[in-house]
Design a protein around this nucleic acid. Structure first.
Lengths: 324, 324
DNA sequence: TTGTACGCGTTATCAG
DNA sequence: CTGATAACGCGTACAA
């Protein structure tokens, strides 16, 4: 039963000053440990005690107004749920930033007309840094690049999505397949990545002098996947790359539904190595730790913070199971 | 190639005033359409044009400092990924709030020691309202209830988790099962819900005069699920409730791995009705729309906004498929 | 250690 | 009726 504790008035630095019998300046110096300002241990102690007693927390907007820095890192995403790899990365980012005095706030931004778009954010918030994850709609990105009041960092390039597609395709080609398919989910939040991965598959096919892959878009329903299988059958596709493991698993389910199986009727390969993939899905594992470290480093660097340079940079690896 | 547009100086209302040859007050009156302040159409037009020309966006912290309202709704979550039902709810919330002049910001809060806890937020942000989703760690909740500077709304009670458990169990009992199991993931972010659902299963068993369910905690690996199956076998469990569909599906995989199947060797029921469940998993569907509408209404009410009263309140339904 | 100006937008009061 | 002056909210930092 979460009660409804109404907004109690916050104790201001003026309150602390009055209660301690000192000036506001002194309070500020003490609480910020301002260097070159020698305050007597006695008053220092007194101020700290009263501040604690009153539960004083400096008003963030007053501070930001004066210093010009909100210590807020705003993360813009196309969907709140981007899969466990990014989830992990955002966790790490939240922690690392907290250790350095920043707070990570996530805001969902969409193409929908009823959301007023990126620029609107600036009338609510003045972030120190903006980081975009998952790729924004092109229109929003343009606005961001042109008019952002804060530096912008994106996850673009951290995961080489096209190489994911290449690895998937290379493996399948290596196993003797000559006509590949690529299945991408009809999800706006994943479109940017999906296109990169599809491009990777295409390149691999080209390099192997094969005809381009059959690319299909599926909805979340089994029916949609079944139609996808129909198309693959009609076009002679013998091996399919799923944009991610979820897609690949649904494909396996659809196969099973028509009493077929992988890899006999269709070889299937996914990407991400989610837990459900463990049993049979061949996939390209994405090392969540490494991915997280890379994003974190990029953000910290942009903030001018010290960074741990020992980053592993290989985060992709093939995991062979039975589905392909 | 997201460039790194460095923070350009924002045009202030003073800039607009100077450029227009009027006072800051006038600028404010015009831009806010302040009632009872009659400004000549000429200057009004002039001010608006210069503001637009300079790209003026009022400094949010200055405004918040003065008005005491940031128009920020802060959503505290135990994990960024809470499943597609909550994801949908947060989407809806983001939209509805945007329409009413608020912005929804999500912040992850954890039990980990290296995050400094909820109270820390208040030194970065002064939200108008705080909404907690997914259940916070008890320690954090206590702090929140005791010292929150803003009203707090939680999703507690929106989804009757214990009833989910009850519905799962009732169905299985109705199908003749006498010894039930409950499988919960070892995920801090889901613990609160999982315990509620387990309690529901327990109650159902009690009402049917059955012995209490065997409750197991699993990790993400197939091995862990396999151990869970061992325990069920040892204790005579014939039907298992998964905390959610992911868990239930992993259980099905684990069964399959030992060449067994549901419901013959073990009846399995899940909850949420995610896409992958469509093929065979019997489950308790959670209506995402209804769930979203309920949360949204609760938040809007707390903000004193008008609310659409026509809310469906039944959001749970049994979906029978082959696994149980 | 303290007085005080400043950052920026809002708003009550006041003059033309 | 139109618009300006000035104080305020709160923390920071320079001059004294």
């Amino acid at each position: 039963m979460a009660g409804a504790p109404q907004g109690r008035r916050r104790a201001t630095s003026t309150d602390v000053a009055r209660e301690s019998g000192v000036s506001r300046a002194t309070v500020s110096y003490v609480l910020n440990n301002t260097p070159n300002k020698h305050i007597s241990p006695a008053t220092r102690e007194l101020v700290i005690r009263t501040a604690r007693r009153l539960g004083h927390v400096p008003n963030p907007q007053a501070r930001a107004l004066k210093t010009g820095n909100s210590n807020i890192v705003l993360c813009l995403v196309p969907a709140l749920t981007l899969g466990f790899v990014f989830d992990h990365a955002l966790d790490a980012l939240t922690r690392e930033l907290a250790q350095r005095g920043y707070v990570l706030l996530v805001h969902r931004i969409s193409d929908k007309l009823d959301s007023r778009g990126v620029q609107d954010i600036w009338s609510y918030l003045t972030p120190t840094l903006i980081v975009t994850i998952g790729g924004l709609p092109p229109s929003e990105t343009a606005v961001l690049e042109g008019h952002s009041p804060a530096p912008v960092v994106s996850d673009y390039g951290i995961v080489e999505h096209s190489r994911v597609g290449q690895m998937q395709a290379d493996y399948l080609i290596d196993r003797g397949h000559r006509t590949l398919g690529f299945v991408m989910p009809n999800d706006a939040a994943l479109r940017a990545y999906a296109l990169d991965r599809a491009a990777g598959v295409m390149q691999a096919c080209e390099r192997a002098s094969l005809s381009p892959p059959v690319i299909t878009v599926v909805e979340g329903s089994l029916k949609s996947y079944s139609e996808c299988l129909d198309e693959f059958e009609a076009t002679g596709v013998t091996a399919a790359c799923g944009h991610n493991d979820d897609v690949a698993l649904m494909l396996l389910e659809a196969l099973r539904a028509r009493r077929q199986s992988a890899p006999e009727n269709l070889a299937v390969i996914g990407s991400d190595d989610i837990p459900l993939a463990e049993l049979e899905l061949t996939t390209i594992a994405l090392d969540a730790e490494v991915c997280a470290a890379n994003i974190t480093n990029k953000v910290l660097t942009a903030l001018g913070a010290e960074v741990d340079p020992s980053i592993e940079n290989e985060m992709l690896s093939l995991i062979r199971r039975t589905s392909a």
